[in-house]
Design a protein around this nucleic acid. Structure first.
Lengths: 112, 112
DNA sequence: ATAATACGTAGGATATTTCCTACGCGTCAA
DNA sequence: TTGACGCGTAGGAAATATCCTACGTATTAT
């Protein structure tokens, strides 16, 4: 399997979540919408840098924006995280498979 | 909150999963242990490059190795993915909150 | 012993990411 | 209108990540 040539939405979500600052930004938005400026203040980071990160998050649909006068409020839209959960699925099955195999093993040979 | 200075295990798991090739490698290992060489063949990539990726995955505990003569079998150890699921938790709660608020809104003002 | 093969890692070229300052645009207050 | 403020983005420096070939080591086959 020589790696799919096209990048999938899941690829982009993983890439967006790879950076600690972007995950921090998402966490901050759990408490409600905020502006780029106030987020920049919170993280001791230049506002344009925060704006870039927000752009990435918006690109994968994890964040949406609402203009309000000269302000612009960013809010969390967690739907794309469903892709992450879907990706996780086969590994959890794999894990459960291992666990049950271990369980049946212990059943046959207890306390050895 | 000026960003935690120390990197957490969760940070490292996200970083490890950020690269498409590393996710492909994990997916390949779902079918059972494999050597670096056979993985390299599958992905049309130089073996040392695959070895580097495996090193990263091993660093976060997603992969373990078992030497066997001059071969070395890598296998999937999905436990660290629990960190990812834990990270996901607050966002799923956030999501459910939005859904239920929408539901109660529709209940009060149906089909408008 | 010798040849072949699998391995990890070093060294380094290249690509990508991240972060900043500088700028121009739009909005609000005076 | 004018000045202050918030915004996004361009441009570029610096840090990271990625991928390769080259090398040395260990194991198997001849």
């Amino acid at each position: 399997m020589p790696r799919q040539s096209k990048e999938t939405p899941t690829d982009h979500v993983f890439a967006a979540l790879a950076h600690p600052v972007r995950r921090d930004l998402l966490a901050a938005l759990l408490d409600g919408p905020e502006t780029a400026q106030s987020l920049a203040d919170r993280y001791e980071m230049a506002r344009p840098s925060v704006a870039e990160h927000l752009k990435v998050l918006r690109g994968v649909g994890l964040v949406s924006e609402r203009p309000a006068g000269r302000n612009r409020y960013y809010s969390l839209t967690p739907e794309p995280l469903a892709l992450l959960r879907a990706w996780l699925e086969p590994y959890e099955q794999f894990w459960r498979g291992r666990m049950s195999r271990l369980a049946s093993l212990l059943e046959k040979e207890p306390l050895s």
